[in-house]
Design a protein around this nucleic acid. Sequence first.
DNA 1: CCATACAGTTACTTTTCCGTGCCTACTTTA
DNA 2: TAAAGTAGGCACGGAAAAGTAACTGTATGG
Lengths: 116, 116
Amino acid sequence: MVRTPPQCPMDSILRLLMGPWTTYIIWVLSDQGPQRFGALKRAVPGISTRMLTERLRMLQGAGVIWREQAETIPPAVTYGLTPRGDDLRNVLDALGDIAERWKADGVFDDDDVGAA
Amino acid sequence: MVRTPPQCPMDSILRLLMGPWTTYIIWVLSDQGPQRFGALKRAVPGISTRMLTERLRMLQGAGVIWREQAETIPPAVTYGLTPRGDDLRNVLDALGDIAERWKADGVFDDDDVGAA
DNA sequence: CCATACAGTTACTTTTCCGTGCCTACTTTA
DNA sequence: TAAAGTAGGCACGGAAAAGTAACTGTATGG
């Protein structure tokens, strides 16, 4: 990671959110409440185990989600949003509003965004 | 790009912002006002010509920035934020506030975010 | 007369990401 | 007894993203 543009903390958050699945995971967690690993995987169709694990670790490391492991024999691990995660959810909502407005203006119809 | 998680328009915006330089470009444009290509390149230290061009094209395609080319002989091209870009700037500000709060809590000190 | 700046483009190379498949260790169900 | 689920870890490999470098063409400054 050579590129450390500025010491912008906002950039760190963005880098955190950036993964293709990250926002979706946060969305599910905030919409459906705390979920277990398997349920989360089913709720985010198409994500691989590897990706889900990695993203969850990263989000946990950033204090955005909590992880609760029940030491039962088939271990049951549950993830949920922390207050910090709620912060992000709010920004995501704001972004969603903008997206709605843009969509009404037809930004996404003639595709320039999704495919570079 | 196989992964098209949902048809979430918010996701499209995030994908737009994701590039390592994108937010920084928007920031500069909103902070210093419209800039010419060369000035922008100097304002974003470390970015390559290629990246800057690509990002600008993408942002322009999304209607986030405008591009004005003066057909003088050494062509002078100026870029600036559109109202749509201002929308993003606001979200970025909100994100910046969160980042500040998190930083105060020391999220970025014990690094888990920047380096995975 | 040669270098430089303007605003890129194109090709080449490198790096990183991300999906796939195989493994754990135990339990419940068929 | 065998298959499947639970929550991942680890390694390999292909694809995509990003960096580097060289090139464009004109006009101006030294």
